[in-house]
């Protein structure tokens, strides 16, 4: 035994999880053979580890993967190989600014008042004209999914389309209730919701 009892005690957790080197393991085993208290402590730790490893958890799994794949399409692209961690926020900020300008342009174009019966040039129709949903909503980029879910459930709303390329969702009342009240509630939920507009049909 080349090390003190205190040193051995500090290494016990790693003896229990099997990550100590052979020499340390031999040292600890020698102490365990002679020290009943140390042995009891080792047994207790082993049981705690076994209980922790036996815990069954339900992780987000495929649902989380689908969310991830959806959101990376909306996020800034991966940094080029020459980038640095420190540069990331600046890059993200630039992309956010570009996205904000694009969103502002989209909103102005989509919701600028215009005569309802004016046919589009060439007889084309806006794609959004045939889309379902009574409200067009965008959520804050950092809004947690749980907050969005709770908000929609509390207002009897469901997502019927989206997100669009610009990150807009189209919502409807599940029960056909008061849409204006639901829209007002969304507008009041500022940290979660960025914008709320009535859909143009």
């Amino acid at each position: 035994m080349t090390r003190s009892r205190d040193e051995i005690e500090l290494d016990l957790p790693f003896h229990v999880n099997g990550t100590v080197d052979p020499a340390t393991r031999a040292d600890i085993d020698a102490w365990l053979a002679e020290d009943a208290l140390l042995n009891a402590e080792q047994t207790a730790l082993a049981e705690i580890r076994a209980a922790m490893q036996a815990e069954d958890i339900r992780s987000p799994s495929d649902f989380g993967l689908a969310r991830l794949m959806r959101d990376i399409d909306r996020a800034a692209p991966a940094l080029p190989a020459t980038g640095t961690v420190a540069a990331a926020p600046r890059r993200a900020w630039i992309w956010q600014a570009v996205a904000a300008v694009a969103v502002a342009g989209f909103v102005a174009q989509a919701f600028w008042p215009r005569p309802a019966d004016t046919p589009a040039p060439g007889g084309y129709q806006m794609a959004s004209a045939t889309m379902p949903g009574a409200l067009v909503v965008s959520f804050a980029a950092d809004a947690p999914e749980s907050a969005i879910r709770d908000l929609l459930l509390s207002q009897g709303l469901e997502i019927v389309a989206g997100p669009s390329a610009m990150g807009f969702y189209r919502l409807d009342r599940v029960d056909g209730g008061d849409l204006n009240a639901a829209a007002d509630a969304l507008r009041a939920a500022e940290p979660v919701v960025e914008s709320v507009e009535n859909a143009q049909h």
């Binding site: 990376i72 996020a75 800034a76 991966a78 940094l79 080029p80 020459t82 980038g83 640095t84 990331a88």
Partner: peptide, 8 residues
């Protein structure tokens, strides 16, 4: 974050 900074 991994997606954003993997290149680093």
């Amino acid at each position: 974050d991994i997606w954003r900074v993997a290149a680093t």
